[in-house]
Design a protein around this nucleic acid. Sequence first.
RNA 1: CGGGGCGUAGCGCAGCCUGGUUAGCGCGCCUGCCUUGGGAGCAGGAGGUCGCAGGUUCAAAUCCUGCCGCCCCGACCA
Length: 578
Amino acid sequence: MRYSELLLPTLKETPTEAEVVSHRLLLRAGFVRKLSSGVYTYLPLGLAVIRKVEQIVREEMNKAGAQELLMPMVQPSDLWKESGRWEKYGPELLRFTDRHERESCLGPTHEEVITDLVRREIHSYRNLPVNLYQIQTKFRDEIRPRFGLMRGREFIMKDGYSFDATEKGAEITYQKMYDAYHRIFKRCGLSFRAVEADTGTIGGSFSHEFMVLAETGEDTLVICRSCAYAANMEKAAVQPPEKTGEDVELLPLQKVETPGKKKVEVVCGFLGISPRELVKTMVYLADGDPVAVLVRGDHEVQPVKLKNMLGAVDVELADEKQVFDITGVPSGYLGPIGLKIPVAADQAVSAMVNFTVGANEKNYHMQNVNLPRDFKVFQAADLRQVTEDDRCPSCGGVLELTKGIEVGHIFKLGDSYSRALKATFQDSNSEEQNFVMGCYGIGVSRTVAASIEQNHDENGIIFPLPLAPFQAIILNLDPKTEEISTAAESFYRQLQQKGLEVLLDDRDERPGIKFKDADLIGIPYRITIGKRFLQGAEVEIRSRANGKTLSLSLDKAMAEIVSSISNEMSATQESEAK
RNA sequence: CGGGGCGUAGCGCAGCCUGGUUAGCGCGCCUGCCUUGGGAGCAGGAGGUCGCAGGUUCAAAUCCUGCCGCCCCGACCA
C-alpha cells in the first residue's frame, strides 16, 4: 500500500474527548472516528488490526474444533420471551418494532438464536458435540459508553456456543476453549490472566474471564502470589473468619449519644474504637425489595455476592432518601436492632462480640451489641469484598489486587437455555435430553484497545507483529530524487513479492512528518531510504519496539527484514504447538 | 437515571462575566517561494447557521428559557 493513496488522517493534537491512551492513540493515529456516543467507524488501518485479531481467533477456534457461521443481528422478541430474558435483560437490550408491529431487538448476544437453530437441526447424540461461533457486530445500549473502543455500544465480538450430550462432554469442550483462549491472547502478544468469574446475566454454573493486565482496566483482579488462584473481585471468595472471643464476656447492651457522628471513621474516632469493632448497616434494593446487609466497619459489601445469595436479578444500594422512606431512620444511624426489613450479615460479623451499631435513632449508637442475643439475621454468608489483608481462599497465601481489561469470557451454561427453549436430543437409550451448553466470547474490538493500552510509548502505538496493520513501513525521505525513489520503489516491490505486508510512505512531506507518523501508527519495522543512501548505498532498519537500528545495503536489509519477520511470526505460533 | 462539565473553522482553544461595526489565535488545508534524517520558514489565500429553537433588547457568540449532542464521576458488560 502506498501512503499517498491511503486514508490515514493522523492528528498532531489529541481530541479532548479521549481519556485513556488507547482511545487517544486510536484517534490520533487515524484508526477510528466516532459517529455517535459509543459508536465508531473503523478506518482502513483500524480495520486492518481488527482483521488481524479476527484471523487469529478464527484459526484457533477452527483448530479447536469449532465452526464459523453468521447469525442475524435483528432478532424476534418471541425467542427472548421464551428464554425469559425479554424481561430480565433490561434497557441494555435495544428493542424496537417493525412496520408490522412485530417486536424485535438488536442482538447483544446469541444464546437464543443458536439454541433455536440447534434445537431444529440436531436431534441425536450422534451429532454431538457441536461448537459454533461467529464474529459479528453486537449492540448493547450501554448506560455509559466510554474509553473509545473499550466500552462501545456497538462493538465487534466473537461469540461461540457449544452443545454437548453430557456434563462431562461439556467440561471437555470448556477446557478446549479455555486452552484455545490462552493461545489466542498469547498470539495477540498480550500479557493476560484467566480468572474465575461471576456468570452475570448470561447465567450458568462456572466461568472464567480473560483479563489483560492494564492500569486502565475497569475490573479488579485478585491474584494469589503463591498459587494459581486468580479471580475477579466480584467473585473472589473470602476465607471464613476465625471465631474469636468465644470466652469473652458479653457486656450489657448500651445506648450512647453520638451527636452528628455518621461516617464510620467519625463515629469510631468519637467512641474511641476501631472500625473493626463497628458494624455498618447497608440497605440494598433487591429487585425492588429492601434488604439490610451488615458488614464490619472496615469492609465493603460486594453487591454481586449479595445478588447471588438472594437469587435476585438486580440489587442496588438504596440512596439516603430511600433508606429514610423504608426505615424511618436518617442514614448514619441505621442499625439491625428492631429493623423491620430482612437482615443479612457478612460472615465476619458473626464472629464479632460486643460491637457497635447505629441505634435507629438520630444521634445515637448502640454498643456491646451481640448476636444472636440482640437481634437475628436470616442469613450469614460471604457478602463482602476481599482486601489485600485477606488470605488466598485456595492456599492461604498473600493476595494481590490488580486492574484488568476483560477481553474474553467463557461460561459453562449447563442446560439453562436448552431447558427454557426445550432444546433436546435423543440419547443412546432413546431418551430425550437437554443439550449441555457452553458459551464463549471475545471482545475483538476491545482486544485491539487493550493491546494498545499495553503496548505504547510517548510517540505512539507499538504493535506486536501479529496485530500490526503493516509489518513494515518504508520511508522514502526524498521522493523527488530519482535514485532514492527508484531504490524505495524496488525495495517495496520486493518485500511485497516476499509476501510481506508493507506500507510505502511516498508522500511529498518533510522527513520529520514521516518519522512521527511511522512511530504513531506503530509499524514494527521501519526502513528509511534517504540522502544517506546516495552516499553509502545503505538503508536504515529500525525496530519500533526496541529502537534497534541497523544500516545495511539493500540486499542485506532485505534479507534481514524477511528473516526477522518470519522468525518473529513463527515464534508466536510455535510456542503454542507444544 | 443522579452528580459535574463542555458545545465558537477539520483539530486545539480565546472572546461571553461587563451585549455594540469586518468574531479572533495556533495547528491543519489551498497557492507560490524556500527547505528536506525527527511534526521547518516566508508570503498570499480559502474556510464560521458561534449546537438548535424561542425570548429580552435599537442591537445577542455574549443575557434568559427550553431542547439536542458530547465528555467526565457512579450502577452494566466482551
